[in-house]
Amino acid sequence: MQEGIIVKGIAGFYYVELPDGQTIECRARGKFRKDNIVPLVGDKVVIEVIGSGQGFIKEIKERKSQLIRPPVANVDQVVVVFALKEPDISFTLLDRLLVHVEENNLDCILCFNKSDLDNDGIFEKVNKIYSQAGYKVIKTNALNKEGIDELKDFLKGKISVFAGPSGVGKSTLFNCLQDKVVMQTGSVSEKIGRGRHTTRHAQLIRISDETYLVDTPGFSVLDLSFIEPHKLQFDFREFRDYLTECKFSSCLHVKEKGCAVIQNVELGNISRSRYENYLEFLNEIFEARRTNR
């Protein structure tokens, strides 16, 4: 028996990387189907090697985290990638994605790519908003390698998943960070203003000892209806310092008297755009509950 990590899964085959760098093509034992357990990229597993480069997964170790979309296990952090231009930043989509990051209790790096197109000082704006909210923010240009060394430092010793809309340069950044797998890159569609999907499935690539990257398909819709209304406030990091200062413990920070969150929005300690997205998401969650009654 040997232990390894699943780095790719395609059509019922799971490719397990061993500590010596060898990759074994494995099938999962029938007991996993019986127990309704699906092996995921990122799973640490015990395998039985039965021949030249082939084997069976015998055991899946306990997961410390699990993402549903993309389906990846044991991720430490999310590298959220948006372009400063082409396509323009959707702050609603960005905040929606960050809510999902917080719901999964993952660390996060905000990477704003295509710095060469930023002629309007957009990075200064987003850096102020999201640094103030408590996130690590970096600026990159995948074409001239700006910010790549800084990004590599954040990745060391962790499994990191890339996320963000299509066309922002995730695959190009991925190619800058490693040379084992060349990801297909795509341009932004002029007609619809967003990128074409270029990544077909999630796979985990080792870039150094205990350091892995996962490249995933782009996406544009993230449902929030599973979140309890009173829990959404905790998914906005900058709210947390003020939640105990609200006059009412049941405060949802909409229009309640004595709301410390609203007061700090007015004082500039909380970004108004972030707060407005919170209100939009909260209304969306309530509306979903009314519709599903």
Results as ranks from 00 to 15, higher is better:
I57T: 06
I262F: 07
F82I: 04
R290P: 01
E48W: 05
I205L: 11
L84I: 09
G157E: 07
C108P: 00
H230Y: 13
P19K: 08
V46K: 12
T92R: 14
G42W: 01
K128S: 15
G268V: 05
F32S: 15
N292M: 08
F281C: 09
V99E: 08
E228C: 09
L222N: 06
F236G: 09
I6L: 07
K85E: 15
V126P: 06
K114M: 07
Y135L: 02
S115N: 10
R33W: 06
F154Y: 15
I6A: 12
Q54A: 11
Q263G: 09
L143C: 12
V181N: 13
F13K: 07
K158G: 02
A202E: 08
D107R: 04
L143M: 12
V168P: 12
T140H: 08
N36V: 06
C108G: 02
A142R: 04
A202R: 00
V45R: 05
K136R: 13
K44P: 02
M183C: 13
D116E: 15
L106D: 12
Y130V: 05
C251G: 11
V80C: 12
P229K: 13
N277T: 08
L177D: 09
N119R: 13
V80W: 04
I262G: 11
H253V: 04
F162V: 02
R289T: 10
G157S: 07
I5W: 03
F162I: 00
S115A: 15
E287H: 04
L94K: 11
S52D: 15
L40V: 02
T140G: 10
T23Q: 05
V168S: 11
C259Q: 04
T198C: 11
V137N: 06
V81C: 08
G193A: 08
T23S: 00
L106M: 14
T92E: 10
L18G: 11
F286D: 12
C26T: 13
I5Q: 05
K158C: 01
V72H: 05
F248D: 15
G12Q: 04
S271Q: 05
E146F: 11
T140V: 06
A11N: 11
V101K: 07
I270V: 09
R96V: 05
L177Y: 14
Q178S: 05
V45C: 00
E210P: 00
C26Q: 03
M1E: 14
K125R: 15
D116Q: 02
L106I: 03
I109M: 10
D95N: 11
F162P: 00
T211D: 02
D107G: 15
V261D: 10
N105G: 03
R29N: 02
F112T: 01
K128Y: 12
L151S: 10
L143V: 15
E280Q: 08
F219M: 14
E102D: 04
